[in-house]
Design a protein around this nucleic acid. Sequence first.
RNA 1: GCCCCCAUCGUCUAGAGGCCCAGGACGCCACCCUUUCAAGGUGGAGAUCAGGGGUUCGAAUCCCCUUGGGGGCACCA
Length: 485
Amino acid sequence: MKENIRVRYAPSPTGDPHIGNIRTAIFNWLFARNQKGTFIVRIEDTDQKRTVTGATDTILRALEWLEIEWDEGPGIGGPYAPYIQSERVDSYRNAAQILLDEGKAYYCTCSPERLQKIRLEQQTLRLPPKYDRHCRDLNTSKPVYPTEAVIRFKMPLEGTIVFTDTIRGDVKFDAGVLDDFVILKSDGYPTYHLASTVDDHTMAISHVMRAEEWLPSAPKHQLLYQALNYQMPKFVHLPIILGTDKSKLSKRHGATSIMDFQKMGYLPSAMLNFMALLGWSLDDKTDIISKTSLIENFSIDRIGASPAIFDRDKLNWLNGIYIRQLDPKSFANQALPFLSDESKGFESAYVQKVIPLVQERVKFLSEISEATSFFFQDTLDYADGNLTQKDLDLTISRDLLQQSMSTLEKTNPFLHETIEENLRNLAKRLELKPGQLFGLIRVALTASKATPPLFTTIETLGLDRCVQRLQQAINNLGTILPPPK
RNA sequence: GCCCCCAUCGUCUAGAGGCCCAGGACGCCACCCUUUCAAGGUGGAGAUCAGGGGUUCGAAUCCCCUUGGGGGCACCA
């Protein structure tokens, strides 16, 4: 009989959901879906001071954006509700009381000042900073709340603790380096260690998949499980994600919140694909992989152990692929919000003609604003020198633009095919290389050297705008002094 | 400082003793296509598998050491 797989994503609502955090959510979710198990979201808000209002909501919206749906958790409840730790404090206090009763934990009344002091002393003596177990054998009876007392867990004084990580195998820790950690704080709230242990047990979690930074405290958790007579779930520590400078991804590395990527116009499907590949791989050749295939193929034994660097270039490439795969209608809908403010006054029909022109040219949606801006500007800002093509002097350039203008005026119907035909004929008649003429017109019309195909651009702009811009360019050329002989 | 983890092209990675003088992808370079830019196509540079010792007939793959990198040492998670 197959074990009932239950995994959880347990963020703490202290800010925007970080990339690394979301990757953990993705792995948990993929594993649950692959195993036909249950994916649970649990909010770990046991730090009153650090909890940010609205953060839970942002986290949930990020999951929704990525279409990571949870089976139990905030908003939908479930058999182990509530899924918010601040609403379950009694269970942690009960667990702490049991440990107290069994002599496996003790009240500690040491002041933060004292703790700070011994930490400093240890530092100067080059000793590992560690609680000195001052209160361990004092047998302090229940203090009267409110109080400064915390409850600490009694760690073994010596011996070796062997912890098994699913990815790394056995990891050994010397008990001598671990200290009596706090399980219940003086405000009556549990620490992560206690809360997650109690919850993972009562919620029947089968696999704890969390970031690697938890590995050093894993032996503490193992001991807690044993002290509480809980059965241990499997522990899977996921490799951490680093920035380009190889340090843990943080705000210094620029965009690190999943919301930042949403704002920049990365597609959720691309983000999912990309992040799934950070620490996991399907085989030796697959880079583009659908959600369905991800679910079908995800497995823990293909998760690597070494850290991965978040590579924006590869993300951009992947996102570009997903953008190009979008059907034009869907692209247009998603592109609309990213258009520049200048586009606001324009009629919808015009805007709808412009958008498809950049679909295969942008890597992420926010590039659209820049890529289409010239379509929506009344006056173009010609950069120095751009208007002058090499081998064409000012007078000739002006003349060419003039002739192009009349060619366009005579073009009927005003469609890219006819425009192309007429302009090519013009170039031939003038004995110019097509590229020369087209380059000149392109800059005159768009003030840019890189644009969508010229003839569709012309068609899209429409005759009136073209004429107006060509005239602008001619005037502009008039103000440029001819190069000295 | 102490503890723990990790180590294949710049980056993401394939590789679980012979298939590998190491494969794919991003990025980079060149060429092709072409009105520019993209996209696409073709090709190329790029890793003495961090270094050194073992084990073995044989090691990127197993073991040890060194080095490097990262993470952790809170009444934060």
